[in-house]
Design a protein around this nucleic acid. Sequence first.
DNA 1: TTCCATATTGGAACGGCGCTCCAGATGTGT
DNA 2: ACACATCTGGAGCGCCGTTCCAATATGGAA
Lengths: 231, 231
Amino acid sequence: MATGTRRAQRRTEALSRERIVEAAVELLDAAGESGLTFRVLTERLATGPGAIYWHVANKGELLVAATDAVVADALAAESAGSPREEVHAVALGLFSAIDAHPWLAAQLLLQLSRSPGGPVTPRILESLGRRVRALGVPEEHWFTATSVLMHYVLGAAGQNAANSQVTEPDADRAEFLAATAEAWEALDPEEYETTRAMASQMSEHDDREQFLAGIDLVLAGVAALYPGGRA
Amino acid sequence: MATGTRRAQRRTEALSRERIVEAAVELLDAAGESGLTFRVLTERLATGPGAIYWHVANKGELLVAATDAVVADALAAESAGSPREEVHAVALGLFSAIDAHPWLAAQLLLQLSRSPGGPVTPRILESLGRRVRALGVPEEHWFTATSVLMHYVLGAAGQNAANSQVTEPDADRAEFLAATAEAWEALDPEEYETTRAMASQMSEHDDREQFLAGIDLVLAGVAALYPGGRA
DNA sequence: TTCCATATTGGAACGGCGCTCCAGATGTGT
DNA sequence: ACACATCTGGAGCGCCGTTCCAATATGGAA
């Protein structure tokens, strides 16, 4: 008989770092960044703060763990195809993850710039870096090309994610996008001439198409600077 | 005699939104994001919270105003040269601003993705957009090209800024960079093969050179996709 | 089985935060 | 001189992350 099988059942499932992180992600998904609180977390897990702090050092670490869990999941899918197609797949995977977990964008941007030593940065860097390598970029330029790709992917996906959540729950994403475009068009016509021109462009195009267009622009740069590659 | 000249001097300078924002920037510069508190702000300005809230709606608005002030200043410098040189100048202007105000990176990234309707996004978009235009990019692609540029500039500059402040005050930037590189090199050799290879590259190159290399990659993409431009 | 050291739990409480409330000071127009 | 709008700052509210610690499980040694 396996150990512990006989013992009276616990009142609840045993607390564990995994269960805590899982609950954190659910809270973040449900109520955004401000929805994750140790108070509601203790309530949700039917425990006290001390128990949680036994498994997790502090809130920052919890956010890192939640971010890492979601990102790892998003990057887990294998893909096969031309390097260009694979870059698209990875980028869209992150795009979708950010879309499904709108709090993720801010966390990624913050963790990337605050603590590149954490688990998240290398994960993304590696996933994109491998494909950049496959494009035929010479080794001394891997970092440059991968950085450009990564910062664009996260920045653009983050900007996009704002559209789906920031406003009231009943507001449609298209509405919000239009609102931003409107705000831009209301700017001073002389001082913000170019921004106004870009506003319509932004709101009239499909999100993912627009997103991929940016990636293709980067890939075109890669192809131009390092010819002989195989995109 | 001008109005008010005769009146007894106030005990202190009159409170104003400008003075508040100015003090906020100073506090942020001195102690980072967590250094800006209404408590220390009231102390610094020798007043109470109510007085500040009369001029500023909430802390978020204050952060937006502080960010906008610094960014406006950074983008104020006019430059003349080839479009490529001008893009470099604008990018380096932002790079330097982020370097001088390390809290700026996180604010920019957050405000960009959270509320693109705010004052900051259009400011940067316009400044870069004008130069993109000058590169000869066709109008329907202004937004794509400018987005890529902007996200890279802010992301890369933000990553760089982390190097100068995150660690203890006596830690050198080179040290921190090396520490990140070290952390990456300590990763699993198989799972993180590419990241490990990029680590040395990152730490061995001059910050600004590396930064501009990324920009040139984007510009190469622009030139490749929209030939006939004048870089 | 009994016992004990260790691992884990959860409730009470602390200091600090953003923010609100409001009584009063300050300045302005008549 | 008076009334009114603008502006000030102190007291205090509710919530946050976090700490402390007495009580409770757990699992191996006796």
